[in-house]
Amino acid sequence: MEEADILSDRIAIMAKGKLRCIGTSIRLKSRFGTGYVANISFLRNTQGQTHNVYGSTPLYNPDLELVKQFFKDRLDVEPKEEKKTFLTFTIPHNKEELLANFFAELQDREKEFGILDIQLGLTTLEEVFLNIAKLAELESSSTEENLVTLNLSSGSSIQIPIGARFVGIPGTESSEHPRGLMIEVYWGQDDTGTHCIAGHSPVTECLTDSESSTFAQRLTRCSCGIRHH
């Protein structure tokens, strides 16, 4: 992927036997990527102290928690990767209008946070490929009505369509909850780009009328073919 990103003038991506997109690397990242990647670096020496590049007074323990809170408060994002010397954040495209002022303030507070370097770039071409593979997988599953097994925390399991987000639990209907109890399914991808279940939310027991209606509408769209084990 790195070679294609650097050397290619235009890139075409195929998934499930179909040409899904073609364009420049920047265009594909902007269209199919998840947003921007921000890398915040903190430099430490071998004794565990932070090198002070700003003056003679040594800095100790750069405040990663403050930086994390700074990103959370202003952009509502959490670190994608965290180590002692750096943080990595993925910033969605819908936050783009906030970035100029956000990074201007972050640069002004570099000394306060103990930041050595700030880098901002688009998401990788590999992530673009995985996102396109995910869309192709959902399209194929919808057409073929492929089902996967969702194992519930109660120990039971149900068959749900790949990509279904809100799922009703069969057998939980009652006068209090006429549509039954519901959960939200979290999806991920394996190394091959295949859609797989990453987990699910706790059972939703109490919904307002408007929330219940919204859940029911979503369930109608995405949970056809559910089977109970």
Rank of each mutant, 00 (worst) to 15 (best):
F215K: 06
D63M: 01
F86M: 02
S56R: 09
S201C: 10
E139A: 14
W187Q: 09
T123K: 00
R218L: 08
W187E: 08
P92Y: 03
L116C: 06
K18Y: 04
L28A: 04
R31K: 15
G17V: 02
Y186N: 06
K95C: 14
K84N: 08
F113L: 10
I169L: 13
R109G: 04
G163C: 06
A12Y: 02
T24R: 09
I132P: 10
H228M: 10
T90F: 07
S201T: 15
C196V: 15
E139F: 08
D5M: 01
C222D: 15
I40A: 04
N61Y: 09
R109A: 11
A133C: 14
I26F: 06
I226N: 07
F102T: 07
K68H: 01
T85H: 13
R31M: 07
I197L: 11
F166W: 10
F89W: 11
I162L: 09
F70C: 08
I183C: 04
P79C: 02
I115N: 01
Q49A: 14
L181D: 04
H93D: 04
I183P: 01
P79S: 02
A136S: 15
K84W: 00
Y54W: 15
I183W: 12
R109M: 12
S223R: 14
S212G: 15
E65L: 08
L130P: 02
I26D: 05
Q119V: 03
D76R: 06
E145I: 01
D9L: 08
C206Y: 11
V167Y: 05
E145A: 10
I118T: 07
S142G: 14
L19A: 09
F215Y: 15
T50R: 07
P92F: 07
K95W: 01
Q217W: 02
G188M: 05
H177K: 10
G17Q: 10
G163N: 09
P92I: 12
D209W: 00
D191I: 03
I115Y: 03
P92R: 11
L19M: 12
V53D: 03
F32C: 03
N146E: 15
A198L: 13
G171D: 10
K83L: 00
M182W: 13
